[in-house]
Amino acid sequence: MIWNETGFLNALLGGAMIGAAAGLFFWINGRIAGISGMTASLLTRWSFDTVEKAAFLIGLPLGAFLFRQLGSDTPLTVNASPATLAMAGLLVGFGARLGNGCTSGHGVCGLARLSPNSIVATAVFMSAAMACVAIRSFL
């Protein structure tokens, strides 16, 4: 097991920021911060709602850029081959849409409001992801 205090504290603070962002988006904008659902809605007919979702999504890389300057600016490491990445992207997009949510919508917002659908979805995708990693490490 690898554990380090800095990594843990950064994850804790980053998690609190994610929770605060989802909470404020719910409170002020009356919306669920579900990233796959919002991104998918950009592919349909646009309205003010879509612009509001787009504003949230544009904020993601801007906020990430600022916080990467604050210490945790480690290079992004990808070990998967391009073919694996492409397959993974397709599964992530399609699965999130079919299951009506991803790590943000189900894993954070849904669990925070004790949605039965999200509790089941989160248990399923966490188990599937961990099983996928375990199986691949044996291959």
């Binding site: 890389p61 990445l85 993974a88 299951g99 599937a128 992801a129 996928c132």
Partner: peptide, 29 residues
């Protein structure tokens, strides 16, 4: 749909280690 969708999403997440929010950030880096 919920179960199969979440399972496919999980497999994809486990293959790459990337979910939708990080994907939108990582492409800009």
């Amino acid at each position: 749909k919920l179960i199969v969708g979440a399972a496919l999403f999980g497999i994809g997440w486990g293959l790459a280690g990337i979910c939708p929010g990080p994907a939108l950030v990582d492409v800009t880096i």
